[in-house]
Computed example of a mutant assay.
Amino acid sequence: MKPINSKEFEAVIKLPANIRYEYFIKKVADSEEVWGLYDDGWVMTSDNNGDLLVPFWPKREFAEYCAYEEWSSCTAEIIPLNTFISKLLPKIKEDQYKPSIFWNRENAAVLEINALLKDLEQELEQY
């Protein structure tokens, strides 16, 4: 996939979390790639309730943008979409974590695995 241009990056990173989530669904269905931050394992964070979250992004540039402060030693790693759907999401669900979609250093869309899978499957049906 071609890199994102800076105008698109700047516009998308400022969108509300629900709109960034829609962008994530469309981009990952199109590219068949998901991005995470990795350093001896996928990075994790938590919400205000203490629930553990695993963050994911639609493109390398957005993941790299979030590799700062406590995540500054992390690298953006690609996850093939079929691996994300068939292996990673079931493991996250089994561990009772939630996906954190497209954090922009301020907020992210946090939802149940089943809702994320349903949205991805609906989008993939259009391809």
Rank of each mutant, 00 (worst) to 15 (best):
M1W: 13
M1E: 14
K2R: 13
K2T: 12
N5M: 10
N5V: 09
N5F: 10
S6F: 13
E8K: 09
E8V: 10
F9Q: 10
F9V: 09
F9C: 11
E10P: 09
E10F: 12
E10C: 12
V12D: 14
I13K: 03
I13Q: 01
K14P: 01
L15W: 07
I19A: 14
I19D: 15
E22H: 11
I25N: 09
K27G: 10
V28R: 02
A29H: 01
A29E: 03
E33G: 07
W35C: 08
L37D: 10
L37T: 10
L37E: 11
D40A: 12
G41R: 11
W42N: 08
W42M: 12
M44V: 11
T45Q: 10
N48D: 15
D51H: 07
D51K: 08
L52Y: 13
L52P: 08
L53M: 02
V54H: 09
V54R: 09
P55L: 01
K59R: 04
E61V: 05
F62M: 00
A63C: 02
A63N: 04
E64N: 00
C66N: 12
C66D: 10
C66Q: 09
Y68W: 13
Y68I: 15
Y68G: 12
Y68D: 14
E70P: 14
W71I: 05
W71R: 07
T75I: 14
P80V: 01
P80Y: 03
L81T: 00
F84K: 00
S86E: 10
K87C: 07
K87E: 10
L88I: 05
L88E: 03
L89N: 02
L89I: 03
L89C: 00
P90R: 00
K91D: 15
I92K: 04
E94F: 12
E94L: 12
Y97L: 15
Y97A: 14
P99G: 00
S100C: 06
I101W: 02
W103V: 04
E106Y: 13
E106C: 10
N107A: 00
N107F: 01
A108R: 04
A108K: 06
A108Y: 04
V110S: 06
L111R: 03
I113Q: 05
L117C: 09
K118A: 07
D119F: 02
D119V: 01
L120A: 04
E121N: 05
Q122G: 08
Q122H: 08
E123R: 01
E125H: 10
Q126D: 03
Y127M: 10
Y127D: 13
Y127C: 08
Y127K: 12
